[in-house]
């Protein structure tokens, strides 16, 4: 049993700006824990989390893989989230390397076919399109969940990049909800040469949450 990262340093004020770990976060942690041995055996060099928020997920991955075996990179469009990610890494003795950026923008050139573990718990909640666009522009708390008409506004952008990011043994974990049209996501990724399966699913209140795992 791998303990949930210590987040006791984060305050109510932090959670006014940064997504507080919730059922979707914990489902992703559970999926990573189920794969813990496989993840260790794959000896990853580069892990990248998109939208790292509080830093809970990257710290948890760090607890699985150890502080010095791999490079933990993360991006978030929200500078407050980058700060929280950094602090959560420190608190849990995992050297996280947060970068304030949109998705993979500054890393894409150098991380071509280089990412061994890619993680994304995206803004998946279906909203009005304008709401999602404004939320990304505002780069605050709302940007962590508002996902546009099918909840795929931000995820779609990343999905197009995955095949260029993953290393030959790379794997990608994505959180999604039913309204995101999971069979369609899987079909599109299959067209890019990536096999996938639903590794976990859970109902949490109104949300039917999934974790998808994609392999080269």
């Amino acid at each position: 049993m791998i303990p949930t990262p210590d987040l006791s340093h984060l305050t109510r004020t932090d959670y006014e700006h940064v997504y507080e770990p919730a059922e979707d976060t914990f489902l992703l942690l559970d999926a990573l824990e189920e794969d813990a041995q496989t993840l260790r055996d794959s000896k990853p060099h580069i892990c990248l989390e998109i939208g790292s928020g509080s830093g809970c997920v990257s710290s948890f991955l760090g607890a699985i893989l150890g502080p010095s075996n791999t490079l933990y990179l993360s991006t978030d469009i929200n500078p407050h989230a980058s700060r929280c990610t950094f602090l959560t890494g420190e608190k849990n003795k995992i050297p996280l390397n947060p970068i304030t950026a949109s998705l993979t923008q500054p890393l894409a050139r150098r991380l071509s076919n280089a990412v061994d573990i890619l993680l994304f718990n995206p803004p998946y909640v279906p909203t009005f399109e304008e709401e999602a666009a404004e939320a990304q522009h505002g780069a605050g708390l709302q940007g962590s969940w508002a996902g546009g008409s099918d909840g795929m506004r931000v995820t779609d952008v990343l999905l197009r990049q995955v095949k260029n990011l993953l290393s030959p043994n790379g794997r990608f974990y994505l959180v999604a909800v039913k309204q995101n049209n999971i069979p369609d996501i899987q079909k599109r990724m299959r067209d890019d040469g990536l096999q996938s399966e639903v590794v976990l699913q859970r109902r949490a209140g109104r949300e039917h949450l999934f974790v998808l795992r994609f392999l080269r």
Binding site: P79, F86, A101, S102
Partner: peptide, 9 residues
């Protein structure tokens, strides 16, 4: 700033 790069455009 504070050890974090801001790569936003």
């Amino acid at each position: 700033s504070n050890g974090i790069p801001n790569m936003l455009l």
